[in-house]
């Protein structure tokens, strides 16, 4: 069976640049999984996502070698319909609205309009997605007058309403308060339950530890580690590359240093709790 996304030795260089922004990228992403992408600033996270969606090189130009396959077919063989296959939520909040719609309802409906979906179906789908993303009460508000958290949910809704099988989400919580961040993650979890393959760039490792299946670690334009979330996030050597590890992992590490026997470091609060209970009994 073909992988949902496969990269074969992809190297990409931006125009005017001599150094590649992504080097020798090899990835095999499976359907229905949530992949967290971490790495310090400038490691190439956003570039990686642009490559998966084809914006690099189609929009950014530059040179690319290697091959990107989406569901077994080369990315270049897809036409504009690719935006219904791969949804992309960008990092910048305020440029994510179409800029021409007066209400959130119309904003969310915009993509479906472009794809020529019948009116009744648009209404039904948009209402469903506004419910899922908890923006029903904003439906008649102007997209220009939303708070950061509201804007991010509207942006998410506008993309997932197209029902893409693959979703790329670039730092959805970087400009949000903790509460809004949590609510965004709840939406992402629901999307995963709907069977979507999700690639998520995120700095908040505590949230990633809880929600993601696998983690891809980038450093200096290359993937330096990739694998099951607990396996990756409990790797203390990642700290050398400027990567933060979950709070509980660091705490457990301190306990281990002070003599407690811990076989596998916990990465979520729940795992830590289990560990403590196990030690007490």
């Amino acid at each position: 069976m073909a992988y949902e996304i496969e990269c074969k030795d992809v190297t990409y260089t931006y125009p005017l640049s001599k150094k590649p922004a992504i080097k020798n990228l090899n990835l095999k992403l499976e359907k229905g999984k949530l992949y967290g992408v971490i790495g310090e600033n400038g490691a190439g996270k956003t570039t990686l996502c642009s490559i998966l969606r084809g914006f690099a090189p189609s929009f950014y130009k530059g040179t690319i070698s290697g091959e990107v396959l989406i569901q077994g077919k080369p990315l270049s063989s897809y036409d504009e319909q690719i935006s219904r296959k791969i949804g992309y939520v960008f990092q910048n909040l305020f440029t994510q609205i179409s800029g021409i719609k007066n209400t959130v309802f119309e904003e969310v409906a915009y993509g479906l309009e472009n794809f020529g979906v019948p009116v009744e179906e648009i209404e039904r789908k948009v209402v469903d997605i506004m419910d899922l993303t908890d923006i029903m009460d904003l439906a008649e508000k102007s997209p220009f007058e939303l708070s950061g958290g509201q804007m991010q949910r509207v942006a998410l809704a506008s993309v997932i309403v197209l029902d893409p099988e693959i979703l790329i989400i670039d730092e959805p919580t970087s400009q949000l308060d903790p509460q809004s961040a949590e609510s965004v993650f709840k939406i992402i979890k629901k999307l995963k339950e709907r069977g979507k393959t999700i690639i998520l760039i995120e700095h908040k490792v505590d949230l990633l530890a809880e929600y993601s299946d696998e983690i891809i670690v980038l450093h200096d334009s290359q993937v330096i580690k990739m694998g099951e979330t607990r396996h990756v996030l409990s790797d203390l050597s990642l700290r050398e590359h400027g990567i933060q590890l979950p709070q509980v992992t660091l705490l457990a590490e301190k306990l281990r240093e002070s003599g407690m026997r811990i076989d596998e470091l916990p990465i979520t609060k729940k795992q830590a709790l289990d560990l403590i209970q196990e030690k007490r009994s």
Binding site: S83, R84, E113, N114, G116
Partner: peptide, 25 residues
Amino acid sequence: IGSEDRVLTLEARGFSIKGEHTHLF
């Protein structure tokens, strides 16, 4: 700088797709 992001936003929403568009209004 913002318009560069907006190009991608619109592309992701099928702006330049060929074929008939629907109009809610």
